[in-house]
Write a protein that binds this DNA or RNA. Sequence first.
DNA 1: TATTTGGTGTGACAATTGTCACTTTAAATT
DNA 2: AATTTAAAGTGACAATTGTCACACCAAATA
Lengths: 214, 214
Amino acid sequence: MRVIIVDDDPIVAMSLKVILEAGSGNASDEKIEVVATGSSGREGIDLYAQHKPDIMVMDIRMDDINGIDAATEILSSNKDANILFLTTFTDDEYINKALKLGAKGYILKQDCAGLPEACKAVCKGQIVYGSKVVERLPDLLGRSSSFDFDAYGITDKEQTLIELVADGLSNKEIASKMFIAEGTVRNLMSSVLSKLDLRDRTQLACFYYQQIKP
Amino acid sequence: MRVIIVDDDPIVAMSLKVILEAGSGNASDEKIEVVATGSSGREGIDLYAQHKPDIMVMDIRMDDINGIDAATEILSSNKDANILFLTTFTDDEYINKALKLGAKGYILKQDCAGLPEACKAVCKGQIVYGSKVVERLPDLLGRSSSFDFDAYGITDKEQTLIELVADGLSNKEIASKMFIAEGTVRNLMSSVLSKLDLRDRTQLACFYYQQIKP
DNA sequence: TATTTGGTGTGACAATTGTCACTTTAAATT
DNA sequence: AATTTAAAGTGACAATTGTCACACCAAATA
């Protein structure tokens, strides 16, 4: 199992090399061999083309080309490349991009002790995400439905109204669906908007899709 | 490492037990011990309470209580339970639910050879998703492939307008941002709404979050 | 050159929308 | 029983919004 490590901190790169090669001690496991280390996205792209490793372990924040862009570049010409991100950050944007471009893993450096196992799993065709990363997935996937309506003093009817607005219904339609007068819908709307500090129903719909059901 | 297997097919359960215990042969690895096997969600819940295993490997489609519901039940009283789904299906709804309830893994039975590694990874705090499963994640997360504005004859300016509406801006604010008159914004809006067969800006915002940038 | 096309703009208009003050009613609290 | 509270409704009002007919102009096209 041939691995390339790319991290802009040489000390980190070396540590990872040690961890990886130490983690391949057992006879029954495939041996892990770190065939090269790089220190930037540019270098990572070149090293991949040169060595075609089984796995590339890569940092995200790097000088010239960041890990995400480098991975995109690599995958564009090597569709089945195994790229495993190892980084300090759980930034949602990073996770999102990593998933979309088809990374085989996303592990935090604080969990790097599990890196050998992760690499083995990836080589077996699995994909590995560190726990801190997967904690974010439900939110990224939407409807963790954990929005705290109570914190804003939003009542049940108001909640219903929000959902109907987010379906694009007019006040009249909402009134009909909720069996209340159109005027009451207006009052409810007014109440919701002021509680959430929004201006109109369109902002409410946006708020819904961004904050409540992202 | 104490494991419980829950699968409504006893033959599968037994096979998994063999695979798991065979996969823990190496001295340096923690030994895997299958302390019990169950054949239904109900049984799974009881067995978990009884043994408090390190990992529970569970099928999803089962007779009385399905795996998802059983896991929800278990997690409600054991917040840090490690539950790993092993199933035949990549149904998006299952994956979604599994992620939301905080499962530590979702592996297809066809990939069960990697189960020992997966269990070890989970015990190290990682979360493991089989490749077929993760293939679905980008879609579940909202596809990166962009909405086909051309198919609806939406122009560049109209595209800009859509994004600003989806930010909750008023016509006046949009006019200011786009350096055009408010009347023109109205005309653009009218054009967009008719092209997309929508009624008002709120429906446009909903459309944006549901169809364009889900 | 003449014509079409598309983007931009204006003004008028009706409908929808959000706010406000106030009433009514029912339930909860004293 | 008396009071308070909350939900529901009404009507008036101004602002915003969407539609439409029409005008202007520059670039492309015939």
